[in-house]
Amino acid sequence: MSGILRLDGLRKSFGSNEVLRGIDLTVQQGERIAILGASGSGKSTLLRCINFMEVPSAGTVTVAGTPVGEEARGGRCYRPAELARLRTRIGMIFQQFNLFPHMTALQNVAEGPLSVLGVGRAEAEARARQHLAKVGLAEKAEAYPARLSGGQQQRVAIARALAMEPEMLLFDEPTSALDPELVGEVLETILGLSREGRTMLLVTHELGFAFHFATRVIFLHEGMIHEEGTPEQVLKHPRQDRTRAFIGRHSTFAF
């Protein structure tokens, strides 16, 4: 099985700092993968290489059997139009939500279908209303982002990604910028999506959530996959010392 997404020997450097040092990963349709690791372990960079928010320094990304970019002059070369088309198939949810502040919630969600997919306005807005309803914000359609709580903004951002009807979703620490009492509503929304059998990759610090959400957990250390397995294996019975230490640090105050 080639999977819906395959990474081969993925590397990324920023100047002399090598953040990813050869990642191999195959993701099957419907898998939910939680990516864990200390800050600086490269987990966000890994996620951002999948939709080319960062262009990998080496290695290949293969989506639904087709390698992205073409071999040229000892590296890979990516055409902007190809990357734009790829991104319409991969939804991304950011830590800071990044809603468009000059648009209402409805306009935010309708914008992608409208200006990228070329869907008509009536159709795009009807679909946007459905997606807003799905994240429980039907009544906030006309509100501007500044009038929404962080949790609501993040749910609108999820609806915005869903409106493109993507083949997979990438979550980059979706609850890290939220007040603790707002984390729950966003996690509930994400769990709701997992019941639809969507393919999702999630970078998070919420180990408890990763346990309930994921079908597979990946622990990154120094830009490499240090340990991976089911949530049960990795979070409850880690084999590697570093994984154990990381999980220990994150549950210091568990009660």
Partner: peptide, 11 residues
Amino acid sequence: GQWEAGRALGM
């Protein structure tokens, strides 16, 4: 973040 959000939609 605004540039990234637009690009991530495939703009």
